[in-house]
Each structure stands twice: as structure tokens, then as C-alpha cells.
């Protein structure tokens, strides 16, 4: 797909230009634009994307946990060289065309705090509450950071890679159980 470096798609050009204007690094992969910004410039970048770039629609905000050891599921491809961190990702899109970009800020694990964008987008409040529930990332400035999904008295943050699944503790992964015959196995 990306064998010929000369064939740049519309997304590549747009992503590079956006990163230039807002000050970050762009990675465009499979028509998805990801722009990495500094944690301190998070609110400012989001604000400028909303006001100057026309990305006014708040789609979602989520967290990602990059860890070497995983309690359940697959680890990363090269766990030894991995930089362990959290990433907070926010997606904004335009409501006039298909322009969209995801802004990512790296949050270190020993200091999981980032500023809240609730003042810019009212809808971010619930998404930040969910990320706080699932990862333990603190959003400074969020008016109501109470648990949204987890019941009262729940200990732990479920989506962390270190959080185990009880079923997998009891019984190991049974493997890929596939019942249906694939079409190329006929004839």
C-alpha cells in the first residue's frame, strides 16, 4: 500500500499541513490522521483545531495503555523496546466534509494527569469520566470526575494492561475455535 513514497493520498497532505499549522507530528495510516502533541499544549492545540481548522465536532476521547507486560491478551510486537506510557487520544472532525484528525498526548505513567477539555467541548465530560474510570488518568478541570461505568466501591482500573480477567486466571486461553469451513477448502 505505501510502497511508492511518491503516491501521497489526500489524507497525507492534509495531515502534514495540519501538523504544521498546529505544531505536532503527524502519522497518517490507513486514511487515519494521528497528530502527536505535547501534554502541555493539549488544550491549546484542541482549541486551535476547533477554532482555526474547522474541526468543531467532538467525536470521542479515549485512553491507551502501552505496557510491556500484559495480564491478558496479546503483547505488543516488540515489548522490550517499548516506551511505557499512557496516551490520551481525542478525535475531532468537521461537519462540512470528511476532514478529521485524532490528537494524541503522551501522559507518563508516574504522573497520570492531563488538562481537561470540558471547557471547550461539553461532551468531553462523560468521555473523560470514562477514561478516568478505565485507566486512572486524572483530568484537571473536569467538573465532575465521579465514576460513570464502575459501581461504587470498585477497586482498580479495568482497561489497564495489568488488570486481569478472572475467567482467564481460572482457565487459560483455549485457542482459536473455528467451526465454519473456509470457502477455499472446497473443490
Amino acid at each position: 500500500m505505501n510502497d511508492q513514497p511518491e503516491a501521497t493520498s489526500v489524507f497525507d497532505t492534509y495531515g502534514a499541513a495540519l501538523a504544521d499549522r498546529l505544531g505536532g507530528t503527524a502519522i497518517v495510516e490507513h486514511d487515519t490522521i494521528r497528530i502527536y502533541v505535547e501534554r502541555d499544549a493539549w488544550v491549546e492545540t484542541v482549541r486551535r483545531a476547533r477554532d482555526e481548522e474547522g474541526l468543531t465536532f467532538f467525536s470521542w476521547l479515549a485512553g491507551i495503555d502501552w505496557s510491556k507486560d500484559v495480564a491478558v491478551g496479546d503483547a505488543v510486537e516488540e515489548p522490550d523496546g517499548l516506551n511505557e506510557r499512557f496516551e490520551v487520544m481525542c478525535r475531532l472532525s468537521s461537519i462540512e466534509n470528511a476532514d478529521a484528525a485524532q490528537f494524541i498526548a503522551v501522559v507518563p505513567k508516574d504522573d497520570p494527569v492531563i488538562d481537561s477539555i470540558t471547557a471547550l467541548f461539553g461532551g468531553a465530560e462523560w468521555h473523560e469520566r470514562e477514561t478516568h474510570d478505565m485507566f486512572g488518568i486524572d483530568f484537571a478541570g473536569n467538573p465532575n470526575l465521579s465514576p460513570i461505568y464502575l459501581p461504587e466501591g470498585f477497586i482498580g482500573h479495568p482497561l489497564l494492561k495489568s488488570y486481569p480477567l478472572l475467567a482467564r486466571e481460572v482457565k487459560p486461553w483455549p485457542g482459536d475455535v473455528d467451526v465454519e469451513d473456509m470457502p477455499e477448502e472446497e473443490a
Binding site: S59, W60, A62, M89, W126, H127
Partner: peptide, 23 residues
């Protein structure tokens, strides 16, 4: 929408589901 992070395995490393009714 679905945001899929794959690390080359059989299972996704992270799946973020953008569900409409939440927003």
C-alpha cells in the same frame, strides 16, 4: 466507529468503540 490498534497478532491490542448513544 471503531478505533483498532493492532500489534500484529490475532487479537486487537486496543479496540475503542465510539458508540453513538453515549454521546
Amino acid at each position: 466507529g471503531y478505533f483498532v490498534i493492532s500489534e500484529g497478532g490475532q487479537k486487537p491490542y486496543r479496540l475503542k468503540i465510539r458508540s453513538t448513544s453515549f454521546s
